Computed example of a mutant assay.
Amino acid sequence: MDKGNACPYASMASSVTFCCAIFAITLVIIRIFYVIYWGSRPHRTRAPQPVSTLIVLGSGGHTAEMLNLLSVLQKDRFTPRFYIAAATDNMSLQKARLLENSLADENGVQTSETAQFMQIYRSREVGQSYITSVWTTLIAMMHALWLMMKIRPQVILCNGPGTCIPLCAIAFLFKVLGIRWSSIFYVESIARVRRLSLSGLLLYKLRMADQLFVQWPQLQRKYPRATYVGRLM
């Protein structure tokens, strides 16, 4: 076949490839808007069933606030529970184990039946340079992908630590791809009065959180898509 005859076929193939790429991108965009729209809608079921719940723990005050929040949740509704903390944060998981052990003693069950405890690599340590954090963020994302494939939670609870970002990003990707629908609930810290934390801001701006709760009315006025719930702790 001479070059004159080959050119029209090459041009046609390029056009088909371009059209397929545009079609695929359009489908992805439509799916993203679908996930964002339905993620923010209330979920109603005729008969509430237990939902597997991933709980992301920060350090210090973040963990204290999360454990206080868990103390008022219906434990039989959010089960089994999977606790994740940063690989360098052993104290938070110890506190979570104490909570679960007390619940197990009350109900006469084994902790292993209702809770599991895991660690994840940090995207960025305190004081770490942004250049080196690129590599550690990639590692954290791969680790988050492995954990999310293993846990496949129906609900994700988080309240501020940067550790939650890779996990929420993977959960959002899973929803877009139709792999697993995980409802992401973010509770901003009581210490955040005028502006969201970096984690909260990312989840708010990128619309990854299904519901984002704040504890101060002026914070809700600044971020109108957030839900003001008053003081929880």
Rank of each mutant, 00 (worst) to 15 (best):
V72P: 01
Y186E: 00
D76H: 08
K205P: 01
S112R: 08
I179A: 08
A226K: 00
V126A: 15
Q110A: 15
Y130W: 10
L173W: 05
F117D: 02
L67S: 02
Q154K: 08
G108Y: 03
A104D: 08
I184T: 06
Q74M: 07
H143G: 03
F213Y: 15
G58V: 05
A86E: 09
R195E: 14
C168V: 05
M233E: 09
A13L: 12
T111I: 15
I36T: 08
E65A: 11
H62Q: 06
V35Q: 01
M91E: 14
V72H: 11
S189L: 05
I29C: 12
M91G: 02
Q218S: 14
V155Q: 11
I22W: 10
A226D: 00
L103V: 11
N101S: 14
L103Q: 10
S59K: 06
W181T: 15
L157V: 06
Y130Q: 12
D89I: 04
V72G: 06
R44F: 15
L67D: 03
S182Q: 03
Y130I: 12
R221E: 14
I84Y: 04
A24Y: 13
Y186G: 00
V109I: 12
I55L: 05
S123R: 12
V35M: 01
V187I: 14
K205I: 08
M142C: 14
K75H: 10
Q110C: 14
H43A: 13
T132D: 13
V155L: 14
S112P: 06
T163K: 04
L203I: 01
L177Q: 09
M233I: 13
L198Y: 08
L167A: 06
L99I: 11
R194N: 13
I84A: 02
V214K: 00
Y83Q: 07
N159L: 01
L198W: 08
A104L: 10
S15G: 15
F213C: 01
P48L: 07
R124W: 04
F117T: 03
P161L: 01
P217K: 01
A86F: 07
I139V: 14
G230Q: 02
H43D: 10
A171G: 05
A6V: 15
T137H: 02
M141Q: 13
P8T: 03
G162P: 03
L232N: 02
P42E: 08
L202D: 02
I151N: 06
T114R: 12
N90Q: 10
G178A: 03
R152N: 05
Y83C: 09
R97C: 09
I55P: 06
Q74S: 14
L99N: 07
R46D: 14
V187F: 13
A13Y: 10
L202W: 09
R41K: 14
L27E: 13
F185I: 10
V51R: 15
G61K: 04
S129W: 06
N107S: 15
A226M: 00
L70Y: 05
